[in-house]
Design a protein around this nucleic acid. Structure first.
Lengths: 262, 262
DNA sequence: CGGTATTTTGAGTATCGTCAAGGCCAGTGG
DNA sequence: CCACTGGCCTTGACGATACTCAAAATACCG
């Protein structure tokens, strides 16, 4: 996704709402309504987008980059509970504050819609309402997938599950999945520390698990954050049986790989 | 919640929809619509309500008892990803099959609404739509809370987190939380095996963690499934700092305890 | 090319999973 | 009424795994 960034009448950054996949099918008047309240915002890596408990004034859609949703506890330790990628929505549509804070995991840009105006549109358009609801359902699925991964005992299993998730659910996301010489290459979009936080362990254990899988031959660590999937089936095996019918089956994944290869 | 069970004209079980908390405020015509498509269904413990992947024909609201949402993998192992209690809705409102199967963790009864009819009502009533959306958002919050709990390394921490969750989020649920002689008593609604599955560990470890906390003095194991919270602050401490601002603060919890004591 | 942050490796300790055995309770049938 | 049975919970012992702390190696950035 590469949006056209423009200036509106007042000279503020905006962009074409219709280019966002899930909005594309909305009726024109709603699109126009969204367009008129849309602002384009950029965030540098590690920049805070919103604090937990705060009522943010806008509803956002990630356009580029990756955000992390996390809770920072009293001791300053972070627990990451999810990653947001392009197309994901955030910001409570209703009145409650968010329980988690949001930070840019990479440089990122989002489209922001002022919340009151967005809610007005929401109550006017059943189609928009539906898009929002589907988005929330999608997030719910994701959260449950995380739970499945987290409920595995061994770090290696959880890490393999995470890699499988990158291959399937994040397959369409820019710069995560590529093919090079017929091989599937995944770029891990977060640091070891963030990964450890996501998977409920320590960076050292993440590192050991990566290298163990490297020695097993199911992956090849080309760079710390660039992983070649040498044996997808072995990886799926490592991840446990949970994955054979997650959201995308292995065969579907192979198709994606093929498509990428073209 | 103790609903009036009645027979409708055709002699089938039904009950008063208006008695369900979240539906109470709906406009009368929608209530009547819901009423006319509502069936009352009971399930015995461990009875299967729906299999993963299956398109169930109804949308349900738990009226009594507890359901577990789980995934059974190829080896027959179960991973529980959540518990449903009274007031919780289930069954995909949209077209996708559920990824998880649903079973009665205890004897349970649900109100079932035929799905096509429910969706018709949904498209007619913005208020009903809103109720459903809030319910989904609530589930999302729960799933993230589970993730926070699961991302702790030690079993004792996760178990303490689970107990805190029972005390806060499930506080209003029948028969979970009571007071006896000024003390807060929690009844754990699932077996050790289910608990192990929820918390990503083994029954033996759950048992050891319970007894360790018993020896620490923060809880008293009156029965395997009946736990007196002897020192709430110590328990919260054990659960990690994540809990000091979950959804209910400790002080709010103390108020609940007071209310129960009356 | 130097300086800093991140990743990796190593060694020692704590925790957990596993297997096996024992205890408790409820329900059953003599 | 009691012995028997089966399910669940508990306990013990041991090997596997992961966490901690510390230090080295590597990658990153100006």
């Amino acid at each position: 996704m590469a949006l056209n960034i423009k200036k509106d009448n007042a000279g503020r950054n905006t962009c074409s709402v219709a280019e966002i996949g899930q909005f594309a099918s909305l009726p024109e008047d709603i699109l126009n309504g969204l367009q008129s309240i849309c602002r384009y915002r950029s965030f540098r890596q590690d920049q805070v987008i919103s604090e937990a408990g705060e009522h943010i004034g806008f509803v956002g859609v990630v356009e580029k980059g990756i955000l992390r949703m996390q809770k920072t506890d009293v001791e300053g330790r972070q627990h990451i509970v999810g990653l947001l990628v392009e197309g994901d929505m955030f910001g409570r549509v209703f009145n409650r504050p968010m329980q988690f804070s949001l930070e840019a995991a990479t440089d990122a840009s989002v489209m922001a819609f002022s919340r009151p105006a967005f809610e007005t549109l929401l109550s006017e358009s059943r189609e928009l309402d539906r898009v929002v609801m589907l988005n929330i359902l999608n997030e719910l699925d994701r959260a449950r997938d995380w739970m499945l991964i987290l409920s595995n005992a061994k770090v290696k299993t959880r890490l393999a599950g995470f890699l499988m998730m990158l291959c399937t659910r994040f397959a369409d996301v820019d710069h995560i999945l590529r093919t090079s010489g017929g091989k599937l290459v995944v770029s891990v979009p977060v640091s070891r520390a963030d990964l450890a936080s996501l998977l409920g362990t320590r960076p050292e254990s993440i590192s050991r698990a990566f290298h163990a899988m490297n020695d097993d031959g199911c992956i090849v660590l080309k760079q710390p954050d660039l992983i070649e999937i040498a044996d997808l089936e072995a990886l799926a095996d490592e991840a446990g049986e949970d994955f054979f019918d997650m959201n995308l089956s292995l065969s579907a994944l192979v198709q994606i790989v093929r498509k990428k290869a073209i």
